[in-house]
Design a protein around this nucleic acid. Sequence first.
DNA 1: AAAACGGGGTG
DNA 2: CACCCAGTTTT
Length: 351
Amino acid sequence: MTLAAQLLDWYYKNARDLPWRKDKDAYKIWVSEIMLQQTRVEVVKDYYKRWMDRFPTLEILAQASEQEVLNYWQGLGYYSRARHLLSGVREVCLEYGGKVPDNPATIQRLPGVGEYTAGAIASIAYNRAAPAVDGNVLRIFSRLFCLDGDIAKSATKREIDRLIRQHIPSQCPGDFNQALMDLGAMICIPRRPRCQLCPLTNLCEAYAREVQDTLPVRATKKAPQLIVLAAAVVLRDGKYLVRQRTKAGLLAGMWEFPAIEVVEDEVAVERLKEELWNELRQAVCIKEKMSHYLHTFSHRKWDISFYQCEWLAGDDLTDKACWLSASELSTVPWAGPHYKVALLLGQKAVK
DNA sequence: AAAACGGGGTG
DNA sequence: CACCCAGTTTT
């Protein structure tokens, strides 16, 4: 028995029943793979179903607005994934006649699609013998072959990609890749792997040496940088003042209550008042702090305070800001903790 | 090669 | 609280 045969025997008895495994539609595989990047399966399930109710085909998604797409992505994180997916399906409509290409290299040219996702789509939707090396595969192979290189480094990834190519079966590469996902999710898990249930222990070098708990090796990430912010909640005639973040960078294109970064020991409320006047031409009187949140991103930590403000006077707003009623707060995608305040103020349905 | 890019679950 | 998750793009 080969590694692939042992793995597939196990997979055909134990495969998870997942919403995106109902058929091999390349668009559906694509959406699921993008949602699953750095995101847990359990979280993706509901988003995926909601998404397919609204955007059941590639053509329907291609016609949607970016704001609506971002709204459906709200809470999933890494929002560039949604923007890339939208531009990607539009590209497929225009350049490939609405059919997702079947060649891994061609698929990888689509925005938001890297080596992993291209391999996953090609192997699962089209049965092409392409590897799909994700976190699960890195973990499983680092244990199988006792590789102690940092799996965050490209050298280690190249080494594992090479090993995969020696084991991927040409008949059913998609099942092989998905079997590795399931093995990594259910058996060869990050901490305390369930080796007694594993179909590959007879091949596993780490198991033989009893070092499976020490692998894979991953360098520890540095602590996120602390950013102190102050945000203004301005109410005028039943509507709230909101603005859109810039097109690039963190939470690009998402909406927020006007906010500033508080540097050193500046007086937050004074700077906030100046910002509203300088940037939005609104005169306000800052009242009491209404809420305070600590919000940690992968690389940054926000300490953000929301201040209730009384509107005094102001010009009409220009392009990137507007007044929204409480019920309209649910119509825009929100930036991080601003979503919690929008929920508080509006009637946005809890997901 | 390293940093940017989100949010939530888990032990 | 540290760590992790079906990674990709930019620097």
